[in-house]
Amino acid sequence: AELMTLTIVKGAQGFGFTIADSPTGQRVKQILDIQGCPGLCEGDLIVEINQQNVQNLSHTEVVDILKDCPIGSETSLIIHRG
């Protein structure tokens, strides 16, 4: 298992991935745009978004944080894999 830092840019259609609740937090459910989120894999656990720890937040709260990220700006994700 490892922590990885990824930088992704939000496009007009969003980030290009969906998230779902899991017992340990929000996991990447589906990658819709592989080019839009390079390095991200289905099943990755989202630990931080732009230096904000999201592991204890609800699904709705994490979705809102992602929605609030401006289109075209870089967003830093720390994910836990494995």
Score class of each variant (00 low, 15 high):
Ala1Val: 15
Glu2Pro: 03
Glu2Ser: 09
Leu3Phe: 13
Met4Pro: 08
Met4Thr: 12
Met4Ile: 09
Met4Trp: 06
Met4Leu: 08
Met4Cys: 05
Thr5His: 05
Thr5Lys: 11
Leu6Ala: 05
Leu6Lys: 07
Thr7Glu: 05
Thr7Met: 07
Ile8Cys: 12
Ile8Pro: 07
Ile8Tyr: 12
Ile8Leu: 14
Ile8Glu: 01
Ile8Trp: 08
Ile8Met: 09
Val9Ser: 06
Lys10Trp: 01
Lys10His: 05
Lys10Tyr: 02
Lys10Ser: 04
Gly11Ala: 13
Gly11Trp: 03
Gly11Tyr: 05
Gly11Pro: 14
Ala12His: 03
Ala12Phe: 08
Ala12Tyr: 05
Ala12Gly: 13
Ala12Lys: 10
Gln13Asp: 09
Gln13Asn: 08
Gln13Trp: 06
Gln13Gly: 12
Gly14Gln: 09
Gly14Asp: 15
Gly14Cys: 06
Gly14Ser: 09
Gly14Arg: 07
Gly14Lys: 09
Gly16Asp: 15
Gly16Leu: 12
Gly16Thr: 10
Gly16Arg: 09
Phe17Leu: 05
Phe17Lys: 00
Phe17Gln: 00
Phe17Tyr: 02
Thr18His: 05
Thr18Trp: 08
Ile19Cys: 02
Ile19Glu: 00
Ile19Asn: 01
Ala20Thr: 02
Asp21Thr: 15
Asp21Phe: 03
Ser22Gln: 13
Ser22Val: 08
Ser22Tyr: 10
Ser22Asp: 14
Ser22Pro: 00
Pro23Val: 02
Pro23Glu: 11
Pro23Met: 08
Thr24Lys: 13
Thr24Met: 10
Thr24Ile: 05
Thr24Val: 08
Gly25Tyr: 04
Gly25Arg: 02
Gly25Leu: 01
Gly25Asp: 00
Gln26Val: 11
Gln26Met: 14
Gln26Arg: 10
Arg27Pro: 01
Arg27Val: 14
Arg27Gly: 06
Val28Thr: 01
Val28Phe: 01
Val28Ser: 00
Lys29His: 15
Gln30Gly: 07
Gln30Trp: 14
Gln30Tyr: 08
Ile31Cys: 03
Ile31Tyr: 03
Leu32Phe: 01
Asp33Arg: 09
Asp33Tyr: 14
Asp33Ile: 02
Ile34Asp: 10
Gln35Asp: 15
Gln35Tyr: 08
Gln35Thr: 15
Gln35Leu: 06
Gly36Cys: 10
Gly36Lys: 05
Gly36His: 05
Gly36Ala: 02
Cys37Gln: 06
Cys37Glu: 13
Cys37Ile: 04
Cys37Met: 04
Cys37Val: 05
Pro38His: 02
Pro38Asn: 01
Gly39Phe: 02
Gly39Glu: 02
Gly39Asn: 10
Leu40Ala: 06
Leu40Phe: 14
Leu40Ser: 01
Cys41Thr: 14
Cys41Ile: 14
Cys41His: 15
Cys41Asp: 14
Glu42Cys: 05
Glu42Arg: 06
Glu42Ala: 07
Glu42Leu: 11
Gly43Ile: 01
Gly43Trp: 03
Asp44Val: 00
Asp44Tyr: 00
Asp44Ala: 02
Asp44Leu: 00
Leu45Glu: 00
Leu45Gln: 14
Ile46Met: 15
Ile46Phe: 15
Ile46Trp: 00
Val47Phe: 15
Glu48Ile: 00
Glu48Pro: 00
Ile49Ala: 04
Ile49Phe: 08
Asn50Phe: 00
Asn50Thr: 01
Asn50Trp: 01
Gln51Ser: 11
Gln52Ala: 10
Gln52Lys: 14
Gln52Arg: 12
Gln52Pro: 00
Asn53His: 10
Asn53Ser: 11
Asn53Phe: 07
Asn53Pro: 12
Val54Arg: 00
Val54Asp: 00
Gln55Thr: 12
Gln55Arg: 13
Gln55Ala: 08
Asn56His: 15
Asn56Gly: 13
Leu57Ile: 08
Leu57Ala: 14
Leu57Tyr: 12
Leu57Asp: 06
Ser58Trp: 11
Ser58Phe: 02
Ser58Gly: 13
Ser58Val: 07
His59Val: 08
His59Gln: 12
His59Asn: 12
Thr60Lys: 12
Glu61Gln: 08
Glu61Cys: 10
Glu61Asn: 02
Glu61Gly: 10
Val62Glu: 00
Val62Cys: 15
Val62Gly: 00
Val62Leu: 06
Val62Arg: 00
Val62Ile: 15
Val63Phe: 01
Val63Cys: 03
Asp64Thr: 05
Asp64Pro: 03
Asp64Val: 09
Ile65Thr: 10
Ile65Gly: 02
Ile65Val: 13
Ile65Phe: 07
Ile65Ser: 09
Leu66Pro: 00
Leu66Met: 10
Leu66Val: 03
Lys67Cys: 06
Lys67Gly: 14
Asp68Glu: 11
Asp68His: 15
Cys69Val: 11
Cys69Trp: 02
Pro70Ser: 12
Gly72Leu: 12
Gly72Asn: 03
Gly72Met: 14
Gly72Phe: 02
Gly72His: 02
Ser73Gly: 15
Ser73Leu: 06
Glu74Leu: 09
Glu74Ser: 04
Glu74Thr: 01
Thr75Ile: 06
Thr75Ser: 02
Thr75His: 14
Ser76Ile: 05
Ser76Asp: 05
Ser76Pro: 10
Ser76Trp: 05
Ser76Gly: 09
Ser76His: 01
Leu77Met: 13
Leu77Phe: 09
Ile78Ser: 13
Ile78Phe: 10
Ile78Arg: 14
Ile78Met: 15
Ile79Arg: 02
Ile79Gly: 01
His80Ala: 09
Arg81Glu: 01
Arg81Trp: 01
Arg81Ser: 09
Gly82Ile: 01
Gly82Ala: 09
Gly82Thr: 11
